[in-house]
Computed example of a mutant assay.
Amino acid sequence: MRAVPVRSIRRLAAAGLLVLLLSGCQTVGTEGLVASDAPPEISGPAASAIAGDMVSRLAEQIGPGKATVLIKPDTSPFGQALEAALKGWGYAVVTDQKPDAKKAVVALAYVVVPFEGQVLARLSTPNVELGRAYTVTASGATPASALSLLKRG
């Protein structure tokens, strides 16, 4: 029997945690989205790199700039970077209203979790969830896993 390298075990654990994060929201509708959360200790450059990558992938799924995005007000580096990235892709961003059935508003929640030297990031809408692990450096962040995509309905 061959010994399994520690690195493989860590990658498997990170993938398992990512699956758990992605499976946490199974209800369709804005009430089912998880509460947005990002640790304040993620640096501005890392937050910008992660938000930029995740929003570009979100745009591939919902179309660039075709909706108004509703996010919770957040002063963390990631919250600010996410709002800037959304606006950079042409989305109108609102933080202070309930979704209105008459308007094309997409509720967006996010979770950013440090885990074993990496950061796991997740964006959730009622129809799409994206997740990815990142390696964070002083100058930014780079993807450390493939993109995980879950589409509903």
Rank of each mutant, 00 (worst) to 15 (best):
S48Q: 11
V119E: 06
L123W: 02
A35Q: 15
Y91E: 04
L70N: 04
K72R: 15
A46Q: 09
A46T: 09
A141E: 03
I9S: 03
A59V: 11
P99I: 08
P99M: 11
P114I: 02
L33Y: 04
A85M: 10
R2V: 15
V4F: 00
A81V: 01
A144Q: 00
V55Q: 11
T30H: 14
I50A: 08
A104T: 04
L58Y: 02
D74I: 08
E83I: 01
T137C: 01
V113E: 12
N127V: 10
Q118K: 07
A13Q: 08
R10V: 02
P77S: 10
L150R: 13
P45L: 08
G90W: 10
L149D: 02
K103H: 10
A144I: 00
C25A: 12
D74G: 01
V28W: 01
N127A: 14
S76R: 04
T30P: 09
P114Y: 04
L108C: 07
Q80E: 13
L150T: 10
K103C: 10
F78C: 06
Q80H: 05
R152M: 09
V19K: 12
T125H: 05
A49E: 10
P40Y: 07
R122H: 02
A141P: 06
L149Q: 01
A49V: 08
M1V: 14
E116T: 00
A14K: 10
L33A: 10
R2K: 14
V4C: 01
Q26A: 14
R7S: 12
L86S: 07
L58V: 00
L12F: 03
A92G: 14
R122G: 00
L18N: 09
C25L: 08
L20Y: 14
V106L: 14
L22G: 13
A35W: 12
S23R: 13
S48F: 03
G52H: 09
T125E: 04
A49G: 10
I71L: 14
L120Y: 05
T125M: 03
A3T: 15
Q118C: 03
K102V: 05
L17A: 07
L149W: 01
V93G: 12
K87F: 11
L130A: 00
K66A: 08
S148V: 05
G117S: 02
A59C: 09
R122T: 01
A81Y: 03
V55G: 10
T30R: 12
G88W: 07
S56Y: 09
T68K: 09
A107F: 05
V119C: 13
A133P: 04
V19L: 06
R57K: 15
